[in-house]
Design a protein around this nucleic acid. Structure first.
Ligand code: MN
Ligand code: MN
Ligand code: ZN
Ligand code: ZN
Lengths: 138, 138
DNA sequence: GTGTAAATGAGAAAAGTTTTCATTTATATT
DNA sequence: AATATAAATGAAAACTTTTCTCATTTACAC
């Protein structure tokens, strides 16, 4: 019952919001660009404008429902927030995304920030490479 | 003698290329956007188009003379390549950039890629925060 | 059911970067 | 030194991703 999720964060329950949420929950890709979401909506015959998709995703981000990854050449992907921090591996061949958590890295980052006198607010870490599947297929 | 540097990497010796190189070498900021370089050129009375600045920086990157950081909100900064890898701390208040090297993180990244079956090609790591100077000034 | 504030859609705008194409320039060859 | 030519440049247009504007529609408190 997603309507409650929306009300809980102070957002009116509208069709675009419900549908975007539905796409994020049911898509087989966990990480989706606004364009991906928009196209998935078109495929389910929902005529929701791209501007609205961006708006809704940004609001969801503000509400803590989704998080946004800012990938290299300035385009963002979104994923449902699951409450746990993780970082990403990006396949440069198929653009697939995998996740990882590494406490050693997390801790070293805090140590570096401290050592440099930074009050750390966040970090962004991406490992680029060729995923297993892409290596196998030639 | 930068002319040799250019010839060495197969680039014709032109005024825009020499001047962009000069800016990168003499500016007090090690990390500069294309716009920064463009403005610095204007200040030294060199009428070099922004498109040329982008072209030259991209060629320099291809030639291994500079490296490009792709910062969050989709705008790039460039720095002279010094042959050694390092990562960056970004101040969210003054946009200042500091550098660090951490072998533990480097090694953990390789371990994670290996564990996930990735053939790692590169990585990008940014620590965001408020730098010492900005903390002190209020 | 109504009123009102909020949300939406369509298109314009913004920001950063790349491309196009006519003109200029560097350099290899005479 | 003059010439030929492939490459580089400048200016403007195009592009990409995202945000904004504003007229219209919708959700929901009353
Ligand atoms: Mn993720
Ligand atoms: Mn650097
Ligand atoms: Zn892959
Ligand atoms: Zn600062």
């Amino acid at each position: 019952m997603e309507s409650q999720d929306l009300r809980k964060v102070g957002l009116k329950v509208t069709l675009p919001r419900l549908k975007v949420l539905e796409i994020l929950e049911t898509s087989d890709q966990r990480h989706m660009s606004a364009e991906d979401v928009y196209k998935a909506l078109l495929e389910m015959e929902e005529e929701i404008g791209l501007a609205t998709v961006y708006r809704v995703l940004t609001q969801f981000e503000g509400a803590g429902l989704v998080s946004r990854l800012s990938i290299d050449g300035g385009h963002a992907v979104f994923e449902l927030e699951d409450g746990t921090h993780h970082d990403h591996l990006l396949c440069v061949r198929c653009n697939g995304i995998e996740e990882f958590v590494d406490e050693v890295i997390e801790q070293r980052q805090r140590a570096i920030a401290k050592q440099k006198g930074f009050e750390m607010t966040e970090h962004s870490l991406y490992i680029y490479g060729i995923c297993r599947k892409c290596q196998e297929s030639q």
